[in-house]
Amino acid sequence: MSTEHEPETSQATGLTRDDAIRAMLVLMPRVAQRIKRTTVPEQLRSMNLAPRHLSLLSHLVFDGPALVSELAARLEVAPTTVSLMVADLSRQGVVERKSDPADRRRTVVTITEDPATRDAINGWLARGAGAWEKALEPLTPQERAMFVRTMEAYEKGASTLPD
């Protein structure tokens, strides 16, 4: 793949760049297929939740209630996009909008208090979180940060390529 030749490396010390690229080109489609096969809990199936909803719900589960502007910043999308998702999820009883006790003019978004829906959301997210926990556990905090930055760089690079 590369015109430059890197020195060969052993599995114990690492991979060459080309070997790593080859491994990731094989691995990423399998990861994508596994994610696509993750079933939505029965309680949530009729709601037609998309991956973008899962990302929003992840932030609410892990970080707690948040303002629309905070969710937009975390998801790296426009506040109007989050407002539309929140309105959709609110109509379906998945999230609730409440007045911010610190400033009644602002609205805080939170996961519904309905135990069945909350349990279904937590169970859905737990599968992926558990897999990430196992995968990231042996890494140092610096290695975890490097991994996340690498995945962000890949996503950014892949999104700029023509289809």
Rank of each mutant, 00 (worst) to 15 (best):
M1F: 09
S2F: 09
T3A: 15
E4R: 12
E4Y: 11
P7Q: 13
P7R: 14
Q11P: 03
A12K: 08
G14C: 05
R17F: 07
D18M: 09
D18F: 03
D19P: 02
M24T: 08
V26D: 15
L27D: 10
Q33A: 14
R37L: 11
T38R: 15
V40Y: 00
V40F: 04
E42Y: 05
E42G: 08
R45K: 12
N48P: 03
S58H: 15
L60T: 06
F62I: 13
G64Q: 06
L67I: 01
V68C: 04
S69P: 02
A73C: 08
A73D: 11
R74N: 08
E76W: 01
A78H: 10
A78N: 09
P79Y: 02
T80K: 06
S83N: 07
M85I: 06
D88G: 02
L89V: 01
L89D: 01
G93T: 06
V94S: 01
E96K: 05
E96I: 07
E96N: 06
E96M: 08
K98D: 00
K98T: 05
S99Y: 01
D100V: 01
D100K: 02
A102M: 02
A102S: 07
D103P: 00
R106N: 04
I111M: 07
E113T: 15
D114W: 00
D114M: 04
D119F: 06
I121Y: 02
R127E: 14
A129V: 08
G130A: 04
G130I: 04
W132R: 07
E133S: 14
L136V: 14
E137N: 13
T140V: 03
F147E: 08
T150M: 13
M151K: 07
M151D: 05
A153C: 07
Y154H: 11
E155A: 14
K156S: 14
G157R: 05
S159M: 10
T160W: 12
P162Y: 07
P162I: 05
D163W: 09
